[in-house]
């Protein structure tokens, strides 16, 4: 299985690659300027987080929009990756009322896919100044926290997922399982 990581300049982009590698996936980190044609044959794609404020520095997010428009395989956006996909499909972003750095108590509202077989509440780590203010039409919120109403989203008609927190860091509980669930989504679609 080949799942690449699009590098949006995150501190933990390389950790996403490491988690995928440990889950025995053929993975590589690619710049976000890579043309989609070079990524068309993958089984899945992770859009990493990054320092850009997506709302104001959309130019720094490279070809993420093209990937989201053209990919037929599952896509997981993390942090800035989720913010970007939310805005791309018509949602809105803004500065967080309560920026989150470090431990966050996650409340899962939808166990259908990314959070399958996971507890309804567990600790995750986040690091963000902005947040999704309204999710796009055709998307639902799948997890939230006391300080951030949109911690995770999924599309209702395409295999597109987003998490505001960072499942790739060691301190996030059930992090590898969230990635494994994403890989399971990929496997199930291929069957």
């Amino acid at each position: 299985m080949r799942v690449y990581v699009v590098d949006n300049g995150g501190q933990w982009t390389h950790r996403e690659w490491r988690v995928l590698k440990y889950l025995k996936v053929d993975s590589r980190i690619v710049p976000n300027t890579t043309p989609f044609s070079e990524l068309a044959d993958l089984d899945g794609l992770v859009l990493s987080g990054g320092a850009p404020s997506v709302a104001s520095d959309a130019g720094l997010m490279g070809n993420n929009g093209e990937y989201l428009d053209k990919a037929e395989y599952p896509v997981l956006g993390i942090c800035a990756g989720m913010q970007f996909l939310s805005e791309h499909f018509g949602g809105s972003l803004g500065p967080s009322v309560n920026p989150e750095f470090g431990r966050v108590g996650l409340k899962v509202g939808d166990h259908t896919d990314l959070f399958r077989n996971l507890p309804s509440e567990f600790n995750v780590w986040a690091s963000h100044n902005d947040e999704v203010k309204s999710v796009p039409q055709g998307f639902v919120v799948t997890a939230s926290s006391e300080t951030c109403p949109v911690e995770a989203v999924r599309s209702l008609d395409r295999p597109i997922y987003g998490v505001q927190f960072h499942p790739e860091v060691e301190n996030t509980e059930n992090g590898p399982q969230i990635f494994q669930n994403f890989l399971n989504i990929i496997s199930e679609r291929r069957r």
Partner: peptide, 11 residues
């Protein structure tokens, strides 16, 4: 990673 590069902030 923390030293920064074209796309990453220098921590």
């Amino acid at each position: 990673i923390e030293s920064g590069d074209g796309v990453r902030d220098t921590i």
